[in-house]
Design a protein around this nucleic acid. Structure first.
Lengths: 261, 261
DNA sequence: ATCATTTTGATCGTTTTTGATTGCTTTCAG
DNA sequence: CTGAAAGCAATCAAAAACGATCAAAATGAT
């Protein structure tokens, strides 16, 4: 693909495409992908910043968030970004084209949304996360179904009875769930009862359930238990073995992925 | 394939075909493919630029594709901005604190969302518009309820059976509806059947119904009829009397607001 | 075949683009 | 708080692309 030498305009267009697909990228990544020098990429980004909705950052650039309200949200997104991306790529490989997918919300789920768009998968996705749903519906083959309900400003997702009731009407092939904590004794846990109930419902109405969690979520026990650790679930994480003690034994199938590029 | 010599016209046509197929190409590539010299290709591109949707760039040419999504959306938001603001302020004065409000989607509705936040109203708002729901939930007293459903990327709103079913569960004090067209004979009309059905539902499940429309929507008849013009509805618009002919007579209560400060 | 016209490819001076170099600033770990 | 490391802007020379010009080649009409 990136064999030939592109014209400057094509390169800039490609940068824009990459930034949109992944919400952001480092200069290093762009250099490698477009086989250009950092100086050139920097010049391109400077130029694009003035005529496209992107924002230069240290070491790269990201899509300009429409509203300043999303500021700290974007910050959270960049935490453990490499691990989340690695998890996302793995999870996407589990998704069959044409299937129906449940996803809850969170920055790891958002990373999966980006990966789905990048992979150009044709799927039906139901989610309570506003940002995930809009991301998926923007110029992709995904049919994105937003579960209705009360919008919580903290997470940009819906919650409550409406959300659960609507989820109850949908049957899926796979549920992808990012919990707040994974604990050897308590299993999959959440901070909010609504989130826990929704996760439970999504899981029972899907043929398969995949739990995704960055290392820092493991061995954490939050307020509400949603599901026990069971052989029916797969846990995809980038954590090292030291953070996994007791989890396998408690019954869950663990899929570790390497975070180093 | 590798014809000996093409006529100039054939060559230009071929260039256009290549550019369309690949979205853009470098002069070097075109030279090789069409076995012509750079000078010739350049002349061709110069000529084509004036009579085809292509754009010359350094080193080649690209298809001239107007950015589809974000540009025209942002553009629409700033269209008739003064009238929309004036309408919004008027409409907000109708909303009782503590009441339940239905709103559909559109840039006029978005203006109303801004006004509600500015007025610091404490209300419950149900809407299919993602941007409206998130705007309302961000740091305000509003409880914002997003109607679930399939996300349409064009309007950033949900639509379909899920949306209607969820709206059917909610009873409101006031429905604020921005239609695609208001016509003396056909009444309130929409481009999409889903939108029309939702508007209908919102209206019947509310004690009051307010139609908002900028001047350019008046006297327009779109594909689908939603509701007739009735005394039960109020139309808030900034249009002059010339655009209102026949509407009052058809039965709707018209509230004109001045657009000048 | 001859002449006028168009098209083409080459040349050359100018402009744009590019990647390396050089100090300066930001970031982050200790 | 300090120092190393990474990122950055500025500068510069080489390379690539450009536009203009012109003569050769192709085309078409007489």
């Amino acid at each position: 693909m990136s064999r030939k030498t592109l014209t400057p305009a094509q390169r800039r267009s490609e940068i824009l495409r990459l930034l949109t697909a992944r919400q952001g990228a480092s200069i290093e990544e762009l250099c490698e992908f477009l086989s250009a020098s950092p100086a050139t990429i920097r010049r391109d980004l400077d130029l694009l910043e003035s005529e496209a909705p992107i924002q230069r950052t240290h070491g790269g650039a990201m899509m300009r968030t429409l509203r300043p309200a999303d500021q700290d949200f974007a910050q959270r997104e960049s935490l453990d970004i490499d691990e989340k991306r690695a998890i996302a790529e793995k999870v996407v490989s589990f998704i069959q084209p044409g299937s129906t997918v449940f996803m809850n919300d969170g920055s790891t789920i958002m990373a999966i949304a980006h990966a789905i768009v990048a992979a150009d998968l044709e799927v039906f996705v139901a989610t309570p996360a506003v940002n995930v749903a809009t991301r998926l519906s923007a110029g992709s083959k995904v049919t994105s179904c937003l579960l209705g309900g009360i919008v919580r400003q903290s997470s940009l997702a819906t919650a409550g009875n409406f959300t659960a009731a609507m989820a109850a009407q949908i049957n899926a092939d796979i549920a992808i769930i990012s919990p707040d904590g994974v604990h050897a004794e308590s299993g999959i846990t959440f901070q909010s009862g609504d989130d826990a109930a929704l996760a439970q419902r999504m899981s029972t109405q899907s043929a398969d359930t995949v739990i995704v969690a960055v290392a820092s979520k493991l061995q954490q026990r939050q307020r509400i238990n949603a599901m026990p650790l069971s052989k029916k679930y797969s846990l995809v994480t980038g954590a090292g073995e030291d953070r996994l003690v007791g989890l396998r034994e408690a019954g869950i199938r663990v899929i570790r992925i390497g975070t180093s590029g």
